[in-house]
């Protein structure tokens, strides 16, 4: 199922994350696996709350980062798909 502007995501309950020296560290507790992600990726993950949809998240990030809106939206959708596959994110009930 594709990630669209209306998609609402939430963090899987086993995910723990923090910022560390301009990057993000994500622990997948169940797998015992750690991911290191860049600044914009950890900000995206921080903003995911199971309520805001992808369009709203993109809007929030556009206020903080100087990027082309279309490129950001496309990159975020692709990244969200990766995180869904990895089990970091799940789809929230609409």
């Amino acid at each position: 199922m594709p990630v669209t502007p209306a998609t609402i995501l939430q963090l899987n309950s086993d995910i723990r994350q923090t910022r560390l020296a301009d990057e993000g560290v994500i622990l997948r507790q169940e797998e015992g696996e750690v991911l290191v992600v860049n600044d914009i990726a950890i900000r995206f993950i921080e903003l995911i709350d199971g309520k805001r949809n992808m369009d709203e998240l993109t809007g929030l990030l556009l206020r903080e980062y100087e990027v082309e809106p279309d490129i950001l939206a496309s990159d975020l959708a692709e990244y969200a798909c990766e995180l869904l596959e990895q089990g970091v994110l799940t789809r929230a009930e609409a």
Partner: peptide, 18 residues
């Protein structure tokens, strides 16, 4: 690894982690 490098940074830059 990325995470080992982050741990090294916590030691080098006195970042309270645990």
């Amino acid at each position: 690894s990325g995470f080992a490098e982050k741990m090294r940074q916590t030691w080098e830059q006195n970042i309270l982690f645990s």
